[in-house]
Amino acid sequence: MIPWSFESGSTQLKIAIFVTLALGFGLFFALMKTPPRLRPKIAATFTFLAGLLYVGIWLWPTAHGREAGDIPANFTEGVAFWLEDTQSQFQNLSNILTSFLLLMGVFSLVRLHATRVSKKQRDWPFSLVLLICVAIMTFIGYWDWLTVMNMKPEELEAMRDVTNQPFAVWMKDLLFDGLLQTMEAAMFSIIAFYILSAAYRAFRVRSVEATILLASAIIVMLGLLGMAENYWSIMIDNMGGLEDPNALVNNLRLEAITQFIRDNLQTPGLRAIDFGVGVGALAMALRLWLSLERGGSTS
């Protein structure tokens, strides 16, 4: 059994949850009682230790070919085993913390809109609609989850036929697939209208740079059209490209031009930007890890 992992619904799990909650609240309370000058130092210590684990994983020799139940042969291997095993616990911690962010988002959204409705601020009916939708979606989501969780395998199999679906599942399908997902797709597709309008008004030949950009954009767009690529190639074939594969005219094929733009102009440009961003991210990560940011404990 993996440490800290217990069977669903077991007494051990319940005790573990209770102890963790008690410890969590205890720590929270202790932090609140800590003098304000000490708090940044505590945060910096935890940040450093968390970062140190990943630095250790990166730098410490890896235990290759490790099998389940292996016992470490020496200290180095012992640390390697420990680092490897600790990662899955950190993974769980990271997933739980990120899930709390989602919960905080929902809480913040509900608080904002509930205030707006209670004070009858501008456009409050829209806020009311949002709150009702959140409540219905949450209720139906959990109802569906509980219904499916308690179903026997043969009942699940029978659900392939939509007429056999329980009401909760049918409602979830209606709200999630029928409504939410469709509305999301519709919202996203609206961008196309703005792209068209913006392209018409802004993509103008105003300078040499703009002309180069416009020409390459049109070539790349044409390259997305299989039909254009195909007829362009037929034209090149008729110009002698088919008979001699090494003919110069073959370089004028639409796919050859788009490939050239992509490989020699677009990708190197993006790679340069990515490289710069990567170096910046590394510097930022170091500053965060060592708490060197302005307002950090060591500043």
Partner: peptide, 20 residues
């Protein structure tokens, strides 16, 4: 949701990362 840490864990030991 914490995909960075999860994939790092997959990279080290997939069985440990997914056992729970």
């Amino acid at each position: 949701p914490g995909i960075e840490a999860s994939l790092q864990s997959f990279s080290s030991n997939l069985r440990n990362a997914l056992s729970a």
